[in-house]
């Protein structure tokens, strides 16, 4: 059957100017141009987007799915990076 080896494309849609592209889903297409056209028909039938990216799924490098992965550990013990870490006297304004 033809089409079995079409690459998988991940689709990202910017819903309106001023917002980032957001992952919408995926589709198969033989090339980038067809992937864009198919993404338009599939993910923006109701004007959900003003811009679309299609990215070959194989081009994405991802971190480990484990949220407790040591990879994210450096951020876990640094509460002083958050504004709520600091005690400010009552009545001090604009801070």
């Amino acid at each position: 059957m033809t089409g079995t080896d079409w690459p998988l494309w991940e689709v990202f849609v910017r819903s309106r100017r001023g917002l980032s592209h957001t992952h919408a889903g995926s589709l198969h297409a033989p090339d980038a141009e067809m992937a864009l056209r198919n993404a338009r028909d599939l993910y923006t039938r109701r004007s959900e987007g003003v811009s679309i990216w299609v990215v070959p799924a194989t081009a994405i490098t991802a971190s480990s799915p484990d949220e407790k992965d040591p990879f994210f550990e450096p951020a876990a013990d640094k509460p002083y990076r958050h504004p709520t870490f600091y005690d400010i006297p009552e009545g001090v304004r604009h801070l």
């Binding site: 033809t2 079409w6 690459p7 297409a29 033989p30 090339d31 980038a32 141009e33 799924a57 194989t58």
Partner: peptide
């Protein structure tokens, strides 16, 4: 579609 993609060499994935 597959032939077109092969001819124009845009199947990057």
């Amino acid at each position: 579609a597959a032939a077109h993609a092969a001819k124009h060499g845009k199947a990057t994935a």
